[in-house]
Design a protein around this nucleic acid. Structure first.
Length: 202
DNA sequence: GCTTTGATAGACT
DNA sequence: GTCTATCAAAGCA
């Protein structure tokens, strides 16, 4: 049962848990994702509309959108939702199920369970670069394979490192997976929190 | 032009 | 638990 990427991002995101992503010789089972609802979502890169950097977000569902974070990391998103909505699912973490040798060589000294723990690590394990942004799943060796069966259970919570709309529980993960990254509030949110109180409450 | 800011990760106390 | 390297874009003047 393939995931219909044209559905709402909040439907697509949890449906991608357990799915496989294959690129650059490594296959990853997705264990953690976050939903970003395009121009409706203050935390999304697409919120302020089309920009040169975010152009691939506005391409058809099934497009890969990669961006550079904090100077050194490459994070990957799957564009989804209605065409042109700018919605995407951030791939935060996964478990390497094939191509372990490649992933290990790209992240020397890292235990297998942590090869793709966190969006920056995931990009590194998959050897993603900004040149991969704009590629389409299903073409040129970039594949998105649906989960063999729907996830037994999923959990949701606030998105990591997001300083706005922090109350939207749009992070989804598979409970009990060692490859799921720990929650970290945005540095900016932490400042705000210290003054206004806990934004996770309520 | 110049300043601010991250959808981070790893090192450190 | 806290601190920060690092750099491309965005935002502003």
């Amino acid at each position: 049962m393939a995931v219909d990427l044209t559905l709402d991002v909040l439907t697509v995101a949890p449906a991608l848990l357990g799915a496989h992503v294959r690129v650059h010789g490594v296959t990853l089972l997705l264990t953690e994702v976050e939903a970003y609802a395009g121009t409706d979502d203050p935390a999304a890169h697409a919120y302020r509309g089309w920009r040169p950097r975010t152009r691939h977000l506005f391409e058809p569902p099934g497009t890969l959108y990669c961006y550079r974070s904090y100077g050194i990391h490459i994070c990957a998103n799957v564009v989804c939702g209605p065409a042109g909505s700018g919605s995407a699912v951030l791939l935060r973490a996964g478990r390497v199920v094939d191509g372990l040798e490649f992933a290990r060589s790209r992240r020397p000294g890292v235990p297998d369970a942590r090869l793709a723990r966190g969006p920056g690590c995931l990009g590194q394990a998959l050897a993603l670069t900004l040149d991969d942004s704009g590629r389409r799943f299903g073409q040129g060796g970039l594949e998105l394979l649906p989960a063999a069966e729907p996830a037994v259970a999923t959990v949701s919570g606030p998105r990591v490192g997001v300083s706005v709309a922090a109350r939207r529980p749009w992070r989804f993960w598979l409970p009990g997976e060692p490859s799921v990254s720990a929650y970290r509030a945005s540095p900016r949110l932490r400042e705000i929190t210290s003054v206004l109180g806990d934004p996770h409450a309520g």
